[in-house]
């Protein structure tokens, strides 16, 4: 006789819709831990967001840069390349050139860029500011205005800097990425605060912060797992989809950047980078990630295949 232990959840993750019309995507909605199809429905598949930068990234590994050589200085083309060549369904635009120390591009200019990219690719978008609170508070509201009604998601909002961004997203019918530093309490507190400003919970996606393989992956994983378990047990304020910035972390790891010449026994540099990104992404799939923000097309291919296998098996 087969021994069966089935746990049923009392709550499900809030479904969040990104974008509008035929290209819109739905994430969340799970009422069980990832891929446990006997315990509940994992209604939406995890989605991969392709990362596009507004200016050529200076610190990327050569193997990664080579992949986007032709478009790395042209964000609109880059986004189109992701859509047409890599089959992207979701674009994650990083406005790193807004940073006062790295370009200091104006809100107007970046808002126009957002509008242009959206017009060209017509895909749902996640727009991430430069990380400087003051500048983000100028730039993101303008970008939100430019994408009014497009149901895009803006971040990062933090516990110290959420009011301006959340308010403009309410006005423009957009949503926010709520960023917490691998801390389940702050994650929840930020959701409460954003919700109290007036943004409905189905317009919030949690960025719980992740670490790459070998760089705190387990810790980030356990925090996500705890949050997801609490959510499934009834905590509405934590029952929101996760977005995980995989590539940003994995390509920072020494192992994905170090040259083959310096570390001959580590194997090929290109393969290392790809595997580091793929393994990190795969792990967070199991922690409950709903959106994986990725870079390398090969890593994306590996992870897409894994998602397909995991979900096909379940849907039977």
């Amino acid at each position: 006789m087969e021994l069966e232990y089935i746990e049923k959840s009392s709550n499900s993750i809030t479904s969040v819709i990104l974008g509008t019309g035929s290209t819109s995507l739905k994430v969340g909605g799970e009422d069980a831990l990832p891929f446990l199809y006997r315990e509940g429905k994992n209604v939406s598949l995890p989605i991969i967001a392709h990362e596009v930068f507004d200016s050529a990234p200076s610190d990327w590994a050569k193997s990664l840069k080579d992949e986007f050589k032709s478009v790395i200085n042209k964000p609109i083309e880059w986004a189109l390349y992701c859509k047409n060549e890599l089959n992207a369904k979701l674009i994650c635009l990083r406005l790193s050139s807004a940073h006062p120390d790295f370009g200091n591009n104006s809100a107007d200019k970046l808002a126009k860029l957002c509008r242009d990219i959206y017009a060209k690719v017509n895909l749902p978008m996640v727009i991430i500011g430069c990380g400087d609170d003051k500048k983000d508070n100028q730039v993101l509201p303008e970008c939100s205005k430019a994408l009014k009604g497009k149901n895009c998601y803006f971040g990062n909002t933090t516990i110290d800097n959420y009011k301006t961004i959340a308010a403009s997203c309410i006005a423009d019918g957009n949503g926010v990425i709520a960023h917490s530093p691998i801390d389940i309490n702050i994650a929840k507190q930020l959701n409460i605060l954003i919700n109290e400003v007036g943004l409905p919970l189905d317009k919030v996606i949690i960025n719980p912060t992740v670490g790459a393989l070998g760089y705190g992956l387990e810790y980030a994983y356990s925090i996500m797992e705890r949050a997801r378990l609490a959510a499934l047990m009834g905590d509405k304020m934590l029952a929101l989809p996760f977005i995980c910035f995989i590539a940003q972390e994995s390509w920072r790891a020494k192992e994905s950047k170090a040259s083959e010449k310096d570390n001959p026994d580590w194997g090929k540099e290109l393969e290392r980078g790809i595997y580091w990104e793929a393994v990190t992404a795969n792990s967070f799939l199991h922690a409950g990630a709903d959106i994986l923000v990725m870079r390398h097309p090969k890593a994306v291919e590996i992870v897409s295949k894994a998602i397909k296998e995991l979900t096909n098996k379940g849907i039977k």
Binding site: I159, D160, K163, T164, Q189, I192, L193, E196
Partner: peptide
């Protein structure tokens, strides 16, 4: 707000 930071 509930985190104790001043609103605008």
């Amino acid at each position: 707000d509930r985190s104790g930071s001043f609103k605008n």
